[in-house]
Design a protein around this nucleic acid. Structure first.
Length: 495
RNA sequence: CGGGGCGUAGCGCAGCCUGGUAGCGCACCUGCUUCGGGUGCAGGGGGUCGGGUGUUCGAAUCACCCCGCCCCGACCA
């Protein structure tokens, strides 16, 4: 297997491998603004495909899309104490509404016009709880107005110190669902339901297996009662939080006076939930499936599902082969597949193979003179690069089947990889040793105290990623302090 | 914000120490050739050497200042 000229091998430097894949596969590029990225068509189509599947699932669970503004009055953020504290450190602030030209050292320079200073400064939303619950409060009067089940697709800004393409950028795209309910039970059910939607989406579309469970208090959303999460493991055995769902209780309802009259005419505060996934999911797909040849995409979300590469020796073959290739493309497109026919003349097949592999196209169809004679095509699967001969007749059905197999196989492979990197650890020294020797999810006993959690993090950089719902009851002793514990939690070093 | 590194053609780099008219690979353009795993040959275009100031007859190269980016850490989806 020829080594890629453009991508640093994963084993050599995982971090560079990731950056190489993102840039070489033309998913994104660095913006002139630090910490921001340009999402290029190949990356954006991937995001759109994920978006569409999620959006459908949100609608199926009764939610409607809306759009709230980018700018939030500064005073709004201050209303929920824990929330301010969580986000204040990373907010971009709009202070002026105009620029003006000023001469500095003989050069014309733009400065904020002092006369245009805003009476109330605006913050660029880091998340929209405040503005949304403020609006909900206007709209809700009666229990008959509940529940409100809303979602918005938007950009948000969090002024991060360290950024990485897709995984953490200053501005990112996401969806944030926001709901209001009459009872705590309903809110809790909603929180869990949307987490399940995320888990289903991650596994069925992204082919990324996820843990589902609860965050510890130190990891929960600022302002939430509690936070649920889906947590995935990347190929460098670091964990990635892939989505969160928060039960906000009445915290925001109280802060924003979101009240309704119940059946008895009594005023009560509503119960809120919020839940979100972001373009970070693109990073998750890259890191869960990619290899040294580049991107590997699950068929269900791949921007291009099938690429046809014609192979011909001379002008004589060329016309017939291209005609046949076009015919196959038409047939596949008619079957609802996204197909690219690579008829670039100046490039030889090997170069095309490598390029499409780098872009992660799940299935390549090779069509050459020998195939034309025999009525076959060669199908090459991206994940394992396996090739097979397939009959040209009924190709659409065959291809669909293969794509389904690839989708299933990718989830299976990712699951095996994760399970092979998940370990029970009982002893703190063993825990530390394991972290430095490969890492992964380490299932260990924890007493439940913030102090032990913080100490472990300070000493090892590992955090409690998730207290899984399905963790079995088990008598044990906290690996840090030795106090009683009733279940294991998932520790890992994380992104 | 701390530590480190790097700014020279679109990308990756050499040249800098020891100052003397800017080079290599890839990519790009033209033509031919090749095509079942990154074809080969020939020709060609492209650079205010991150910015400023200074030293010097002369600065990519030396000095000082500034800016930017990347990597590692603390914080975070």
């Amino acid at each position: 297997m020829a080594k890629s000229k453009l991508i640093t091998p994963m084993g050599e430097d995982y971090s560079r491998w990731y950056t190489d894949v993102v840039t070489q596969a033309r998913l994104a590029d660095y913006s002139p603004v630090k910490g921001c990225m340009v999402i290029r068509p190949h990356g954006y189509t991937l995001w759109e495909n994920m978006q569409q599947a999620l959006d459908r699932m949100f609608k199926e669970t009764g939610h409607q899309n809306a759009y709230f503004p980018l700018f939030i009055p500064k005073s709004f953020l201050a209303k929920e104490a824990e929330h301010v504290e969580g986000f204040a450190k990373e907010c971009a602030i709009v202070t002026h509404s105009r620029l003006k030209t000023e001469m500095v050292d003989g050069k014309a320079t733009l400065i904020p016009d002092p006369d245009s200073k805003l009476d109330e400064e605006l913050i660029v939303r880091p998340t929209s709880e405040t503005i949304i619950y403020h609006m909900f409060a206007k709209w809700v009067k009666s229990y008959r107005d509940l529940p409100i089940l809303m979602n918005q697709w938007a950009n948000v800004v969090r002024w991060e110190m360290r950024t990485r393409l897709f995984l953490r950028t200053t501005e990112f795209l996401w969806q944030e669902g926001h709901t209001a309910h009459a009872t705590p039970e309903e809110a809790e059910a909603e929180t869990r339901k949307m987490l399940d939607v995320y888990a289903t989406f991650a596994e069925e579309f992204m082919a990324v297996p996820v843990l589902t469970g609860r965050k510890t208090d130190s990891e929960k959303f600022a302002g939430a009662l509690h936070t649920y999460c889906i947590e995935a493991l990347m190929q460098d055995n670091k964990a990635l939080q892939a989505g969160t769902s928060h039960n906000l209780g009445q915290n925001f309802a109280k802060a924003f006076d979101l009240k309704f009259q119940d059946e008895e005419g009594k005023w009560r505060h509503a119960y809120n939930t919020s839940w979100g996934v972001s373009t970070r999911l693109v990073g998750a797909v890259i890191m869960a499936h990619g290899d040294d040849n580049g991107l590997v995409l699950p068929p269900k979300i791949a921007p291009i599902q099938v690429v046809i590469v014609p192979i011909y020796r001379s002008g004589d073959d060329k016309d017939a082969i291209l005609a046949k290739a076009a015919e196959i493309r038409t047939e596949l497109t008619a079957a609802g597949l996204t197909v690219e026919l690579d008829d670039r003349d100046k490039m030889n097949p090997g170069a095309k193979f490598n390029e499409w592999e780098m872009l992660g196209v799940p299935l390549r169809i090779e069509l050459g003179p020998k195939d034309l004679e025999k009525g076959t095509v060669v199908c090459a699967r991206r994940p394992d690069r396996a090739k097979s001969f397939e009959q040209m007749s009924g190709i659409a059905g065959t291809v669909s089947t293969i794509l389904d197999e690839i989708q299933a196989q990718m989830l299976e492979t990712a699951r095996e990889r994760r399970d092979a990197a998940t370990f029970n650890v009982d002893d703190y020294d063993a825990f530390k040793a394991k972290l430095d020797d490969g890492g992964g999810f380490l299932l260990a006993h924890w007493c439940g105290s913030d102090a032990c959690e913080a100490a472990v993090q300070a000493e090892t950089k590992a955090t409690i990623r998730c207290i899984t719902f399905d963790a079995p009851e088990e008598e044990g002793a906290c690996m840090k302090c030795g106090e009683k514990s009733t279940r294991r939690v998932h520790f890992a070093r994380a992104y």
